[in-house]
Amino acid sequence: MPVVRCRDSNSQLGGILLTVLAWPSRVNAADNTYTSRLSTALELCGVIVIEFSIGRALFSSYDVLHVHWPEGVLKNGRGRINGLARILAVVGVLFVVRFVRRRKVVWTVHNLRPHDLDRRASLALLRVGLGFTVGGYIHLSSASAPILSKIITRSKQSLQAVIPIGRYSGEFFPSEPRETTRARHEIFGENPLVVFVGQVARYKGVLDLAQVVHASTNKELRLIIAGRCADRDYAQEIECIASADSRIQFNDERLGSTGFANLMQAADVVAYPYTSILNSASVLPPLETRTRVLAPRIGAIPEMSKTVGEDWIITYEQPLTGSAIDEALRTASLKGSPDLTALEWPKIGIDTKAFYLAVMNYQGENQA
């Protein structure tokens, strides 16, 4: 498996003009700012970034098609036939881009399957299409490369690079003091507060978190779960526990960035007890408010923990236990700041541009 280690400086790359068709670039910024921030970082080092459309993919001038969540089309359609049709369209576009238009395709491996979806035939077809067309794979951590090589064996013939998720600086600003938020949620004195913020889903283990807190003998412990849950049956299960335990609050509605920031700042620990995950940017925003994160030792999380500091992203072996929460709360009293230098966007932009150029110049088996 050819691996690119991006060590080029901006001065070496700045004069090289490059146009990238990003799928997506900024169209999804209201839900996920990752690609928007990446686009800005790329533009700062001389890359022209164009928002993807099928028309642009087939007729516009560009050097690289950068794909992020090709499996996302499955979330927009119902039924297996509909899903297969959507994946066929995606694969068709990829083949035209790669073999008719002779452009390079790069895929950032965010997920290897959609969360909470079982579309095996559609995913199998998509993986075949990606295997034949992608010339470069960007991994957000080294954890995904071995898994990918087993699922898409042809990926071994293409270039690979590890470029991490960038930090969330300047995105989450609390609108009130920490004590004000805690008082508004009736968290008084030294009550240890664990918070889950974000979209609530089964794979995120939120019900497990509520059950562990409910079983805890610590009468001072408090838990706030804040975020919209689209699965109404799952929401009802969480609500049943919350209604039976005054220590647990469940706010089943979507939060804005200010609400996010206020709760992250108010927490002693932000918990993301995923049952399964490959990559997760969710563990990074709390660090911007210097709040510790508790997450399982799976997927990219151990590597992210080592990058920012193991006393900032505190990991545990599954399943989640009360002891893991207690240990995280003890660590929360420590002083200091997380080390986010490896996650600065200018470096990520430079490394990504260097990888594009490496893919464009690579003459391996999957690059004909």
Rank of each mutant, 00 (worst) to 15 (best):
P174N: 04
S323H: 11
I248S: 00
D63H: 15
V64W: 07
I16S: 02
M304A: 07
L94K: 06
S276P: 11
R26Y: 07
A143E: 05
L21C: 06
I238L: 03
V269L: 02
C229E: 02
Y203Q: 09
R254E: 15
I147C: 10
T217V: 08
R119F: 05
N218Y: 06
E365R: 15
K104Y: 10
I225Y: 01
R178C: 11
E186F: 08
L126C: 12
A266L: 00
A368D: 13
V4E: 07
L38F: 08
D245A: 00
L278W: 09
A201N: 10
F132W: 12
S337P: 04
E51R: 06
R292F: 02
K204H: 03
Q265H: 13
S337Y: 13
F188S: 14
V73W: 01
A271Y: 01
R154Y: 04
C6K: 00
G349I: 05
V105G: 07
S280F: 02
T275M: 09
I348H: 00
Q211I: 09
V73Q: 05
A145C: 06
D311T: 11
V106L: 07
P273F: 03
V47G: 10
F95G: 07
A342L: 15
N82R: 13
E43Q: 14
W23Y: 12
T153D: 09
I350W: 04
S175M: 08
T40I: 13
N28P: 08
I350L: 10
T352L: 00
Y274D: 03
E303F: 09
N191V: 05
A41R: 00
I152N: 03
L42Y: 00
L21E: 04
T133Y: 05
A161E: 06
T133R: 14
S155W: 04
S142F: 04
A124T: 07
Q199S: 07
P146A: 05
T153M: 08
E310D: 08
P296F: 10
D116S: 13
V283P: 01
S142Y: 11
